[in-house]
Design a protein around this nucleic acid. Structure first.
Lengths: 77, 77
DNA sequence: ACTTTACGTAAAGTTTACTTTACATAAAAA
DNA sequence: TTTTTATGTAAAGTAAACTTTACGTAAAGT
């Protein structure tokens, strides 16, 4: 299982950037080259991003993958 | 495009560990919970691992994801 | 010689990531 | 008050990751 701080990081940017239009789900999606639905699904935890998308998001927020995504070990079952 | 040093890291272990049976493609596959074909495909660059598999591999080799996988930017086309 | 071990290829099938479309709601802006 | 903006849900379709099976080869072990 992998958890993520995508929404948290995005909302952080919304606060500090003041130009709020730059950090909507829609804008984020465009900037990393996916659909808005994909951003929603990842923020919600419906599924994990691909490794490539994880890299793009990390680059955009200027952090390492490990600062957005945390591997919690095997799921139960 | 994402490049990886999986084969390189695995062969490094083969050299230093001396117990060579621990670092075959088959054993590596078992240890991260995928099939041998998946390891072959990733070493060869046929496709990228999922984020989860990338984490498992990084954990096994005791390195960060960025030390195995390198994001090279957008593919041409 | 022959058997086992490690690596490789190929191909069909399943699951997961992602897209597209459509429609709903609440808040902000006109 | 009506329109626009941002977020959300749902569902059907496509693409990428991964499995399973099967077979080929070369080197090492017996």
């Amino acid at each position: 299982m992998i958890t993520n701080r995508l929404r948290e990081l995005r909302e952080q940017q919304l606060r500090i950037t003041s130009d709020s239009t730059q950090w909507t789900q829609e804008e984020l999606a465009v900037r990393v080259g996916v659909s808005r639905q994909t951003i929603i699904a990842i923020e919600k935890g419906t599924y994990n991003p691909s490794l490539e998308l994880a890299f793009k998001l990390a680059n955009l927020f200027d952090v390492k993958i490990e600062e957005i995504f945390t591997y919690m070990g095997e799921a139960n079952g």
